[in-house]
Design a binder for these strands. Sequence first.
DNA 1: TACAAGTGATCAAACGTTTTAGCAGAAATG
DNA 2: CATTTCTGCTAAAACGTTTGATCACTTGTA
Lengths: 359, 359
Amino acid sequence: MNSQENSSVTPLGAAAPLGRPGRPQPVTLRQVAEAAGVSTATVSLVVNKKKTARISDETRQRVRDAIRDLGYRPNAMAQTLVSGSSRFIGLVADAIATTPFAGQIIHGAQDEAWKHGYALLIANTEGNRELETDAIAMMLEYKVRGILYSTWFHRPTDIPASLKESDFVLVNCFSTEPGSRAVVPDEVQGGRSATEILLKHGHRRIAFINATIPAPAKDGRLQGYREALEAEGIPFDAGLVLEAYPDQEGGYGATEELLKREATAVYCYNDRMAMGLYDGLREHGLSIPEDMAVVGFDNQEVIAAHVRPPLSTVALPHYELGAAGVRMLLGLDEAPAADPTKIHCPTVERNSVRALAPA
Amino acid sequence: MNSQENSSVTPLGAAAPLGRPGRPQPVTLRQVAEAAGVSTATVSLVVNKKKTARISDETRQRVRDAIRDLGYRPNAMAQTLVSGSSRFIGLVADAIATTPFAGQIIHGAQDEAWKHGYALLIANTEGNRELETDAIAMMLEYKVRGILYSTWFHRPTDIPASLKESDFVLVNCFSTEPGSRAVVPDEVQGGRSATEILLKHGHRRIAFINATIPAPAKDGRLQGYREALEAEGIPFDAGLVLEAYPDQEGGYGATEELLKREATAVYCYNDRMAMGLYDGLREHGLSIPEDMAVVGFDNQEVIAAHVRPPLSTVALPHYELGAAGVRMLLGLDEAPAADPTKIHCPTVERNSVRALAPA
DNA sequence: TACAAGTGATCAAACGTTTTAGCAGAAATG
DNA sequence: CATTTCTGCTAAAACGTTTGATCACTTGTA
């Protein structure tokens, strides 16, 4: 009917396509080529801005117009198929958001991946081995560039067999298996930093409420505490180290014992314990930081920034862990010195520590 | 050399392949076919367990052996290319983990998607429109089955143009634009439930500390409060409704005003305010729940479950929002009645409310 | 014996790109 | 004028699957 000129009878109008109801079939390279009166090769060259290609400005413009008019979008699946490797990075996590922490790993990984033109494919396994295997299989089938295998708390792990079929980096966990790359928080430095906050305010009798449950964090944070004291020439006193379950109730319950130690300051294994300790100290009519200086660990925002007074603490670098994991996967960082690369835990000072009043 | 039988000269040993250093080129259908002495079509039929296909048990077994020996994995990109649509669902979020909340949306979406054989492709936009457009473009190029567009707090939004090129569902946000599907929390019911916790313990003079910043939550939670009172025949008293900035400091700061109202119970806009209020009440020597019953809203785990006493609250159903979003996207739920589908906010009772002592 | 029906497998096209080799014509060179 | 070089573009193979059509046999039936 309206066959004036060969203006490609818009293929969008063709009888109902097979796709999902109501959605037009996506526009392909071929359609663009026909509309512009060139070959698909030419369109591809224009789309990909190949500098080596010799295309006249006139043609280039015609192609661009056609692309715009038709609303063309490249089919990434086809591109991946020919190029052999996708622009995906997989992230498998054992707890995607049971904790606010894991979220930051995702966040950091996502940002960094995106920065390098990769998209994040995520799977949470909730600790279920079977789910984990399936998730990794899925990622392998989608030809991911590599896989980030992450845990929500810093711990040793073993490496699922299928993980080795791809490039991978362990995030927030590590393995003794040779040849595996890993990024973890620098617990020792963190413990040192936490203690140093107190030291630099003049405190000398500093208690440490450690966790009861074994973990790299437990050992590392203790070691950091010892190192910091040692650097100041303060002898380590095992009597100043308590242990409690690492949550609010644990911190609260440790109050009595802590007060017997006659410390002027306390460093808690984590912010949740500090929060519980706040309640315990308050019940004894003590105020923070006047009667007791307190530092935490983790920088768990909802807690640390908002208890009264706001808590000085050391942050777990989850965002950085995710980002560093991606960089390591892509081989962007120079080869790391230490085996599990250790990420710095920055100090976050608020108002729970004050200079020790002269005795 | 060891050419006993035609046991496929394992192609893995072939000269260094072009892939990433050290990684063997993936095994293809064709290689499996050659190893098993059949056509690729046959292998495909075996892999996909087509019931209509007629394959002898003997052949089937030979193929399976070859698959196992070679460690074959299907190339999902090729599958997608021929089938036209991928097994991806995209999730674009304005704050992936700035808050523990967004994490649960991801979590719910991930679980539900996985259940139906889909993988989640995520992108966070940090509220940046350009990033958002790029993220959506990426998802469209990967031919996602659909896109979940989510916000970290319940609010109206407008729909980016490119989003409409795909199926999509708004999660935790909504638009007045016709034809857009959305899932949001049922704020009104939540407000009603929160108030009912107090009512059923005999409280009659119940204050409400609302937020100062406008939001669907602000209006909805207030309306729920009114409805609950009304159902009990208690006249609404505007004097019992305070407003404060919705965080710990806001709750703390509202203490004085609250105490003037002589209420026996208070319902806070969110858990953070309740946490601040705890501090304020404590400073006045009041105890919870004896002197004042408190309920919050959000069920922010780190806070609600661990303040002293643990806080009764109403949960925001983030996990469910994510899951329901996926179901809606895939058309698994029967057509919803209301336009934005409202998700129930469940009550979580702890110890911050006690039966009112008879006067 | 002739034919239909059933069985087990293969052929080949298609999906939407990228990319190398090559072609036709124009311009430059001798 | 004959040759070379350059310019602008295209043809066609390849990537790894899926799938409808087809084929060569074998078995059953008349």
